[in-house]
Design a binder for these strands. Structure first.
Length: 418
RNA sequence: GUGGGAUUAGUUCAGCUGGUUAGAGCGCUAGUUUGUGGCACUAGAAAUCACGGGUUCGAAUCCCGUAUCCCACCCCA
C-alpha cells in the first residue's frame, strides 16, 4: 500500500454516508425549526483569530493547531473549532445590526494536532450553533433544548446533560483569589502544570487529573458557591427554564471547559460509549468574546458536538439508520436488441426520477440475475426478444417473486406508483 | 509529549519452538449448455508477509529503527 490516509483522518465511505446524510438532514431541520440558518465559514483563518478567541493559554492553541505560513508570509491556521470563525464573520458582516438574536448553525470539519484515540481524530466533524445578542438565560435553555430534541429525534437516549456556571469575569476574579488562598498551602505538592496554572489560570487546577492534585482539588471551594448575585440569578433561571422544558440535568461543578472564552453557563452532553472521550457535545455562553475579537459588546452562546462521537454513540445504542436503496429496478437483457431497449428504458426512468440499473459488465443473463439479487434491488424486469416485439413486460418483486405484466408504455407510471 | 498492544490477499484471521511453491472464511470474477435472483457446487484473480536495517546456511517467524493502527495519560468534540 503506497498511500494511506493521514493519521487521524478517515474516509467516510459510500457504504456509511447515508448515516451522515441522515444526521445532517435531521440537525439542520431541528435548527430551522428554532429559527437558525446555516452559515458556512472558511476552513482556515489568520492564526491570531484563534489565539485571541480560543485563548492563548489553552491546550488547543498552545499545542494542537495546524499552523503554517502561506506564500505571502501570513500565519494561517486550520480552524480547531467553529466559534471563533463565526464570531469573526458576525463582526465582519455587520450582523450586529440584524434583529437579535442572530442565530446560525454550522456543519464543519475542524483540525487539531492530537494523538489519536477512540473518539478523537485530527480532522473531525462538528455540528454546532451560535446565538448572538441575548443575555439569556432563556436562550441558554433553548439551545440546550436543540441538542435534546435532536438526540430524541435520532432516537438516542442515555446521554447525560451536565451544567455549571463559571460566572462572569468579576465573580471569577474574586473566586480566583479564594482558590489561590486554598491552594497556596499545598503549592509544593502540586504538579508542574498546576503550579503554572496557579498564576495564569487557577480555575484549571480544579479538574487536574494528576492524582495528588485531584486529592487536593477535591475539597476546593466551588466557583458555583462564589457567583455574584447576577450570575447566581442567571444560573437559577437557567435551571428553572430547563425544568420548565422537562429537560433533566445534573449540576457538575467540575465542568470548566478548556476554551477561554466561556462565561456563566457551560454544559456538556456526556456518554459512556465514546471511550474516555465522554463528551459528545459541549458549549456555553461567551459574553466577552465578540468584544475580544474586535466587535462591540454582544453577548453570545453556542455549542459544538462531535459528529464522529455522535455516530459512535448511535452505534453503541443500536440506532437504525435505514440504508435507503436508491435503485428501484434492475433490467436484465437477453440479447443485443433487448440491450438497446433496456438502455432507453433505464434512461427514461431516471429522467422520471426513478432509480434504475442495467448491466455494464457484459454479463451473461444468469450473471445479471445474480448481480441484481446481490445488489438487493427490489424489482426486476427481464427484456428478451419477446418483450421487444410484444411491448409487454413483466415486473417482478424480488422479495416474494410476484410478477405483474404491464405494457412498456405504462412503465413509468407503474414504477412511480410502487 | 509519554506509555502498552498490534501490523500476513479487498476484508476478517491462521501460520506451532525460524526449514522447500505463505493458507482459510467472507468478498470479487467466471462457469454449472443463453427466459428468472440471493443458496449450493466448480474454477480463477488477488499477498514484494507495513517499511528499512541486522542475526542466520535459511526470516512472515528472532533483534533494532521508522511509519501506521488500536488503547490509555493529557486535553477536548
Amino acid at each position: 500500500m503506497r498511500f494511506a490516509a493521514q493519521k487521524g483522518t478517515r474516509d467516510i465511505l459510500p457504504e456509511d454516508i447515508y448515516k451522515w446524510h441522515k444526521l445532517e438532514r435531521l440537525y439542520s431541520d431541528v435548527c430551522h425549526r428554532y429559527g437558525y440558518e446555516e452559515i458556512r465559514i472558511p476552513t482556515f483563518e489568520q492564526t491570531d483569530l484563534f489565539q485571541r478567541g480560543v485563548g492563548d493559554t489553552t491546550d488547543v492553541v498552545q499545542k494542537e493547531m495546524y499552523t503554517f505560513d502561506d506564500k505571502g508570509g501570513r500565519s494561517i491556521t486550520l480552524r480547531p473549532e467553529g466559534t471563533a470563525g463565526v464570531v469573526r464573520s458576525f463582526i465582519e458582516n455587520g450582523m450586529g445590526s440584524l434583529p437579535s438574536p442572530v442565530r446560525m448553525f454550522y456543519n464543519i470539519t475542524a483540525f487539531r494536532y492530537e494523538n489519536v484515540q477512540k473518539g478523537r481524530l485530527r480532522e473531525f466533524h462538528q455540528f454546532g450553533l451560535e446565538a448572538f445578542g441575548s443575555e439569556g438565560p432563556e436562550i441558554d435553555a433553548e439551545i440546550i433544548s436543540t441538542v435534546k430534541l435532536f438526540f430524541d429525534e435520532i432516537g438516542l437516549s442515555k446521554t447525560k446533560l451536565c451544567i455549571n456556571s463559571i460566572g462572569c469575569p468579576s465573580c471569577r476574579s474574586k473566586y480566583n483569589e479564594v482558590l489561590k488562598d486554598y491552594f497556596r498551602p499545598h503549592i509544593d505538592k502540586l504538579c508542574e502544570d498546576c503550579r503554572s496554572r496557579f498564576e495564569k489560570n487557577p480555575l484549571r487546577m480544579i479538574d487536574c487529573k494528576v492524582e495528588s492534585c485531584g486529592a487536593i482539588a477535591k475539597d476546593a471551594p466551588r466557583l458555583i458557591d462564589y457567583l455574584c448575585d447576577e450570575c447566581d440569578e442567571h444560573f437559577a433561571k437557567l435551571k428553572a427554564n430547563l425544568d420548565l422544558l422537562g429537560i433533566s440535568y445534573e449540576i457538575d461543578s467540575g465542568i470548566v471547559r478548556g476554551l477561554d472564552y466561556y462565561t456563566r453557563t457551560v454544559f456538556e452532553f456526556k456518554s459512556e460509549n465514546v471511550g474516555t472521550q465522554g463528551t459528545i457535545c459541549g458549549g456555553g455562553r461567551y459574553d466577552g468574546l465578540v468584544e475580544e475579537i474586535g466587535g462591540q459588546h454582544v453577548p453570545g452562546i453556542g455549542y459544538a458536538m462531535g459528529v464522529e462521537r455522535l455516530l459512535m454513540e448511535c452505534e453503541a445504542q443500536g440506532i437504525e439508520f435505514g440504508n435507503p436503496n436508491n435503485v428501484l429496478v434492475y433490467f436484465a437483457a437477453m440479447s443485443d436488441s433487448a440491450k438497446a431497449l433496456v438502455s432507453k428504458l433505464v434512461f427514461d426512468l431516471r429522467k422520471a426520477g426513478i432509480g434504475a440499473e442495467q448491466d455494464l459488465m457484459n454479463r451473461s443473463f444468469r450473471a445479471q440475475m445474480k448481480y441484481a439479487g446481490k445488489a438487493k434491488i427490489p424489482y426486476l424486469v427481464v427484456i428478451g426478444d419477446d418483450e421487444v416485439s410484444s411491448g409487454q413486460i413483466k415486473v417482478k418483486r424480488m422479495e416474494d417473486g410476484v410478477e405483474e405484466q404491464i405494457g412498456i408504455d405504462n412503465l413509468i407510471s407503474y414504477m412511480k406508483a410502487l
